[in-house]
Write a protein that binds this DNA or RNA. Structure first.
Length: 460
RNA sequence: GGCGCGGUGGCAGAGUGGUCAUGCAGCGGACUGCAACUCCGCGUACGCCGGUUCGAUUCCGACCCGCGCCUCCA
């Protein structure tokens, strides 16, 4: 039995898909005006692990993650760059796919783009207007009337009166109420636009997701996810739009990832601590980044810092050390560890608990190996690779992990030549020379590991 | 101010009404030419004050502190 925390009910709930065996999940994706940052990585990785695990449990997951490719920020940035907005969005989408691939993110089943759903968006707005949930303002904008939807605030637990009282008063406000939000924005002169019953314009942000999710998954689906800051107003507004338009319940379960901080501060451009995925991948291997994120629960806040990433790297190294020089057995029968792992993951995807199981298996491998129980070691290694794989970890050859080269490094051949020289010196009991070579390599970031089978090395 | 989340050993990070998290770092021992890796063992903990209970880090209440959202933001 899988239990998942539902933001809507504020508790863990037993997960039972609307359609047995099938999971329909929608996650709010990127607005493609810039490179993806660490916060995006968190959401990407959280739902990657969730998707992998649900599939591992035999569920057929239909995973939709949208791309917002029309929006104020996109138009502004394209304007600054002096390029058509589609040139910007195409480039950023390519970059995003590259980042995802490097992080080993399983691609979503569908990746709808807002500009490909303009007709559906207009249709939904039309429905809302005709049902009395939305109105066209004099300026060509169309707004959702928040007071027309009784359930407004049920996700974020906000009271409509507070929102109205707290709202800023805009100049030249075309809204009937300050809490109302735009479904359709009238085009400004020279701006890209699409024709609509209310004049040329473009969709508001929130309506895109309502339209794309219902088009891809139906009026009601199982899981809706996203980043922590989307809870309000974005997700609240999606519920209002979708349930008003369809008359059906929207998503059954709402999942939100935790925030990412950097050195105990909020990540922001003004603080200068804003990291893109590609910047981070220049400093740390993708698997270390994944392991770091998987080491805390997907709902908790994480702090990105050099110390934390270094620790993740050391910890992952231990796991790969256990697998080094072993051919993992395939089709190993399920063990007590598989059971514990599943129990942890069934409980709202408790990856920290699950990774403690990984360490237990690694200890077993080390012990078997030390006591020369080769087939037991191979069997345990099979379990470790299997369980790691569910989290997207431990799938590369240990030697690749340890010896992955970055520019300017000593080549593998050079290193092996030096190791040979050192072993010759050791054979001659010239330990001064042997230690000199080892220290020299250590100074260049190469750590040697001697064992009965010989000397292996890794980049530290 | 409103809504929500959290305060666990040097650090990271799970969890539980009453013997174990786990990892990193540290210490002792084994292994090693010496190290590294590995193995065995060790230590330090549940913000504060009350309450419930035979017993609370775990439940309840107050307080203090931190964080997120309330505006575009993953």
């Amino acid at each position: 039995m899988i239990r998942i925390y539902n933001t809507l009910s504020q508790r863990k709930e037993e997960f039972s898909p609307l359609q047995p065996g099938k999971v329909r999940m929608y996650v709010c994706g990127m607005t493609v005006y810039d490179y993806c940052h660490l916060g995006h990585a968190r959401v990407l990785l959280a739902f990657d692990v969730i998707t992998r695990y649900l599939r591992h449990r035999g569920l057929d997951v239909h995973y939709v993650r949208n791309i917002t490719d029309i929006d104020d920020k996109i138009l502004r940035r394209a304007d600054e760059n002096g390029e058509p907005f589609t040139a910007l969005t195409d480039r950023m989408i390519d970059a995003m796919h590259e980042d995802e691939q490097r992080l080993g993110i399983v691609p979503p089943t569908e990746e709808p783009r807002a500009t490909a759903y303009i007709d559906d968006i207009i249709r939904m707005i039309n429905t809302l207007v005709s049902k009395g949930f939305a109105y066209a303002a004099d300026n060509g904008d169309v707004y959702f009337s928040v007071k027309a939807f009784d359930g407004y605030g049920k996700l974020s637990r906000k009271k409509l009166d507070d929102l109205i009282a707290g709202a800023r008063v805009d100049v030249a406000e075309a809204k009937q109420s300050p809490a109302d939000f735009a479904l359709w924005k009238a085009a400004k002169p020279g701006e890209v636009s699409w024709p609509s019953p209310w004049g040329d314009g473009r969709p508001g942000w929130h309506i895109e997701c309502s339209a794309m999710s219902t088009c891809c998954l139906g009026d009601t689906f199982d899981i809706h996810g996203g980043g922590p800051d989307l809870l309000f107003p974005h997700h609240e507004n999606e519920i209002a739009q979708s349930e008003s338009a369809t008359g059906q319940p929207f998503a059954k379960l709402w999942m939100h990832a935790g925030a990412v901080r950097v050195n105990q501060e909020k990540m922001s451009k003004s603080l200068g601590n804003f990291f893109t995925i590609r910047e981070i991948l220049e400093r740390y291997p993708a698997e270390v980044v994944r392991f770091f994120l998987v080491s805390s629960h997907y709902r908790s806040q994480v702090d990105y810092s050099e110390a934390n990433l270094e620790e993740a790297s050391r910890t992952l190294t231990r796991l790969y050390h256990a697998l080094r020089g072993i051919t993992p057995a395939v089709d190993t029968p399920a063990t007590e560890y598989d059971r514990r792992f599943q129990e942890a993951m069934d409980d709202d995807f408790n990856t920290p608990e699950a990774s403690s199981v990984l360490h237990a298996v690694a200890s077993d491998i080390n012990l078997h190996r030390r006591e020369s129980r080769e087939s037991d070691a191979r069997a345990s290694a099979g379990v470790l690779v299997r369980l790691g794989g569910i989290l997207g970890l431990l799938q590369q050859e240990p030697e690749n992990f340890f010896q992955a080269e970055s520019v300017g490094d000593l080549s593998a051949t050079d290193i092996e030549t030096l190791i040979e020289a050192r072993n010759q010196a050791r054979k001659n009991r010239d330990f001064a020379e042997a230690d000199r070579i080892r220290d020299d390599l250590a100074g260049r970031g190469i750590i040697l590991d001697d064992s009965r089978e010989g000397t292996s090395w890794r980049r530290g």
